[in-house]
Write a protein that binds this DNA or RNA. Structure first.
Lengths: 286, 286
DNA sequence: GTTCCGCATGAATCGATAG
DNA sequence: ACTATCGATTCATGCGGAA
């Protein structure tokens, strides 16, 4: 049977785990989350040795060791059809890219995760700076892991306008619409699709072009809401549960809520917890 | 005619190693190349299990083992101030990204290489296709390795125009071209750079936006000439020596020659050798 | 000389079929 | 069961021919 939250007894209601932001160390909190209950984990954990003041600064050499227990819990709480998206980028240490992310990928596979794909987040407005031996770092990894080869993926929900739709849309419109309508019947969507009716659309690829959010004042990591949104649309449906064990200022929760998904956020810093709760609360008023 | 290095006796003149394309297995040929003689290695080795007919198809599980002896030779022939740029991408095997590239990076570091940086080549025109569990693969790794932390880097040579270029130029373009320009983010590759001489310039970042050359010539080059050109400009000066141990149809040699650098190409396939020689020969006539 | 349009062409991947 | 081959799917790009 599932590990029940400590304060609950008897029948557990799934709703208790939805739309909440919990303060605490995710390694501990996660133990109280039921198995096979989460549809998507999307998170941007503290990077090694960075954000020292906020997270205690995990040393690069200890990063894998630190993350593995959390990876194990995430594997347990994720549904077999769910996905785990890890946004991360290795630091420069002593003039070299450190290898802890590579080692983490290998270690997570040892743990049973499937390394399905590596998406690239291209940061269009990367952090300025100049060094004699390198250029600005303008990309981060978004690693997709799965428990099983059979996972949910709703590709139609993230389609984008075709490169030259303006040129050909009028000509091909009828023909293409017919074809797309057929395929739409089987896959039971409708909401987002309707936004694109009349346009040519194509499936995206594994390179995401997003700007970092400079307005994110308090939390040190500039994690644009569009990033979790994209993965939430891609890997969940409305009503599904999205987990972020390193919630920070609540970007993932906001994204999930805005898309009609349930969220579960864990954050160790009380200030961030408060900030995140305000954010999702504020969103209520809109 | 092919003047093989083995035919030479006595003192080696550096010129003997310049501007030549040698047919043979690079693992063997490299042994005859003088130590500390190359300013830049830029190459795109056969990817695991691909190009089966031409290279014999290295199995993913044996890739690291196969590459390491070559890596050792490259380390020897490279000058201490030189760089080694490796263009590579892992395949999907059984629904997962294979880990041989990650393992190769770790193994090359064991061999003494410094993993200085990972550039991303964003392939604007990625191979089409649709699958239930993934999108099209639109990026490849360009891994930069060095022998020493003190390596040559000429950042000014790859600066890109900035600022008001969109403003000035977009007005004249058609609607479709405008749309294309939007997606043409960042590192100003392209032919019209000369139009922007004298304008404000900025340093690029570590994401390169290039299209593959699909229907360019008879022989479609796996990587576009702009890719080696960028690294050649960045890591060498005129008169320096550029080595490509997997020359293919000669893209790197052409790029080096066009930029006034010397080249040394090694290629096992006689047809490619012939093609590459014709290419650099043809370039002479222009 | 432009601009526009048609068309072939990829460092792909999956799933089914065949040996 | 495990490998090898094949068909289906899909789209940005650049060339060449046409207006």
């Amino acid at each position: 049977m599932v590990a029940l939250p400590l304060h609950m007894n008897g029948h557990q209601q799934e709703n208790d785990w939805q739309d909440r932001i919990i303060q605490g160390d995710c390694q501990e909190i996660l133990k109280t989350v039921p198995s096979d209950s989460v549809d998507l984990v999307v998170t941007s954990p503290p990077y090694a040795d960075s954000r020292k003041k906020t997270y205690g600064g995990i040393h690069p050499d200890q990063y894998v060791e630190w993350f593995l227990p959390i990876g194990a819990e995430l594997q347990r709480v994720l549904k077999p059809t769910g996905s785990f998206v890890l946004n991360i980028k290795e630091k420069v240490v002593d003039g070299e890219r450190h290898t802890y992310v590579l080692e983490l990928i290998l270690a997570l596979r040892q743990q049973g995760w499937l390394w399905t794909e590596e998406y690239i987040w291209h940061k269009k407005n990367s952090y300025p700076g100049k060094w004699p031996n390198r250029f600005r770092d303008a990309w981060e990894r978004c690693l997709q892991f799965n428990r099983s080869k059979q996972f949910n993926m709703y590709q139609d929900s993230v389609m984008v306008p075709t490169g030259d739709w303006a040129k050909t849309r009028l000509r091909k419109l009828s023909e293409t619409d017919q074809r797309r309508d057929e395929s739409r019947v089987g896959s039971g969507f409708g909401k987002n699709i309707s936004n694109w009716v009349g346009r040519e659309q194509a499936y995206p690829n594994n390179v995401l072009h997003l700007a970092t959010e400079s307005s994110n004042r308090k939390h040190s990591a500039a994690f644009p809401q569009e990033l979790p949104k994209w993965f939430i649309k891609l890997f969940t449906q409305e009503g599904d549960l999205v987990l972020d064990p390193f919630m920070g200022s609540g970007t993932t929760a906001l994204a999930a809520k805005a898309l009609g998904r349930h969220y579960l956020g864990i954050e160790i810093q009380p200030e961030y917890v408060e900030l995140a709760r305000q954010s999702v609360g504020d969103a209520d008023c809109e």
